Simulated assay, not measured.
Amino acid sequence: MARRLTDEEIERQLGDLSGWTREGDSIHASFEAPDFLAGVALVQEVAAAAEAMDHHPDIDIRWRTVTFTLSTHSEGGLTQLDVELAHQISQEAARRGARSTA
């Protein structure tokens, strides 16, 4: 079971996650893909990574914009799993040519 991060830990780690912001007990980021199919491919890659981690984000896709929201619901807040998955999402978005909308 993952340990819930403190506010200080969250803020420090968000400093390394460009485009990610905190809202309450979750972090989120939106990425604009070059086209719709690239956005769908990003979702597929993130879904595979999330399944491997057994840690699943909320995902919203609107044409070329894909928004990811992360929280560890079982812990009632943010854990290291959220931060790790956010890094993977950012790396995959960059690999697919998707840019942060922040």
Rank of each mutant, 00 (worst) to 15 (best):
G19T: 01
E8N: 13
T79S: 13
D82P: 06
G15L: 10
D58I: 10
T6Q: 13
A33M: 06
L78W: 07
E75G: 01
P34D: 04
E75P: 00
A29I: 09
A2H: 02
R12C: 00
D16M: 00
T79R: 04
F36Q: 13
R96T: 03
H55L: 10
Q13N: 09
M1D: 01
L42N: 03
I61H: 11
R99I: 12
R22P: 05
G24L: 14
D7C: 01
G76H: 07
G19W: 04
V43D: 00
Q13K: 14
Q13W: 05
L37Q: 12
E84I: 06
L17A: 08
F68P: 03
Q13T: 04
Q13V: 01
D35V: 07
L37P: 00
E92P: 04
A93Y: 07
I61P: 02
L81K: 14
Q44I: 11
A98L: 11
S71T: 15
G24T: 07
L17W: 03
A47Y: 03
E75Q: 13
F31Y: 15
D7T: 02
T21F: 05
A52Y: 02
R96M: 14
L78N: 02
A49I: 11
W20G: 04
A52W: 01
A86Y: 03
I10H: 02
A41P: 00
Q13C: 01
R22S: 06
R99F: 06
T65H: 03
H73W: 13
L17N: 03
E11W: 15
A94G: 07
P57G: 03
L17H: 00
E23N: 12
A33I: 04
S18H: 05
T69K: 15
T101G: 02
D25P: 03
L14C: 06
G15E: 07
D25F: 09
R62N: 10
R12K: 14
I59M: 14
A41R: 09
R3P: 01
F31C: 09
R96C: 04
R3F: 09
L85K: 07
G77E: 06
R22T: 03
R12A: 12
